[in-house]
């Protein structure tokens, strides 16, 4: 592997609420173009981790270094300016605008035109917005009101919005939650392709183990706030500690694949 500095470096990240240690001294690295999954049972601290990474939450201690810049204490909008795109567990888009306008707003922000009160947004970066929508397969819906979209389409629109600032890092909190099985696979394939082509690092949390084992290059396993395992899908799957703690889904996955292999 190359010796380039990591895109994202997390060292000793901790956060507690009252007496509860939501996240305990978590450290990991993420390289450009790498797809890293953060998994763990409910309440393991995945979302807290995520919110600290993009500045929505402040850690009690620890360092987060993105492209050599320390990000702890910066607001989400400042982290975004460093080149971090984010999608949410429950989609956050602008329902009173068209699909294209949703992307255009992000492009307006990227072009630092937010306080331009005289221009026309309709003609601002129109082609670029169209290109991003085509990229996620939403080109045909560009003029539709965003409030009318189906949930899977909203997830794809969110991805287009998150790509508007040409991010180096994509943070995706349960990108396929609430989607039909087929849509899940499509969305993750799309994400993986874009990440490889543009050399974007992707960190995602996910409950669907099929999605995780199929698309992640590396997996981090979080339990009760602590990182208990880290490695390739095969390593993590074979890890007895993960199996013990992560019972349900891992076993189901295994059983299903054994059946598949037997048939």
């Amino acid at each position: 592997m190359s010796m380039a500095p990591p895109l994202l470096k997390v060292e000793g990240l901790s956060k507690s609420y009252g007496g509860v240690h939501a996240v305990r001294s978590v450290s990991f690295e993420l390289r450009a173009g790498e797809i890293l999954a953060l998994i763990g049972p409910n309440g393991a601290g995945k979302s807290t981790c995520f919110d600290m990474l993009n500045g929505q939450n402040t850690p009690d201690s620890g360092r987060i270094t993105l492209l050599g810049v320390e990000t702890v204490g910066r607001k989400p909008r400042a982290v975004w300016r460093l080149g971090v795109g984010r999608t949410f567990q429950i989609t956050a888009t602008f329902p009173t605008m068209t699909v294209r306008e949703n992307v255009q707003v992000a492009l307006v922000s990227y072009g630092r035109q937010l306080f331009n009160i005289w221009g026309s947004t309709a003609s601002y970066a129109r082609e670029e917005a169209g290109r991003l929508l085509d990229l996620v397969g939403m080109g045909a819906y560009a003029e539709r009101p965003c409030g009318e979209l189906a949930y899977g389409d909203l997830k794809r629109l969110e991805l287009a919005i998150a790509l508007a600032n040409q991010p180096k890092l994509l943070l995706m909190d349960e990108p396929t939650a609430g989607m039909a099985p087929r849509e899940r696979i499509e969305l993750m394939r799309l994400t993986a392709r874009i990440a490889r082509e543009q050399s974007i690092g992707v960190l995602f949390t996910e409950h669907d183990m099929d999605v995780v084992f199929e698309h992640a290059d590396r997996i981090l396993v979080l339990n009760r706030g602590s990182l208990i395992a880290e490695g390739s899908p095969a390593e993590v799957r074979g890890n007895p500690q993960v199996r013990a703690i992560y019972l349900g889904e891992g076993l189901v996955y295994d059983a299903r694949h054994r059946e598949g292999a037997g048939a």
Partner: peptide, 15 residues
């Protein structure tokens, strides 16, 4: 309008 529609999303795109 973005700020009105979704404070969360608009903050996440640098607004």
């Amino acid at each position: 309008r973005a700020t009105r529609d979704s404070p969360l999303r608009s903050e996440a795109i640098g607004i």
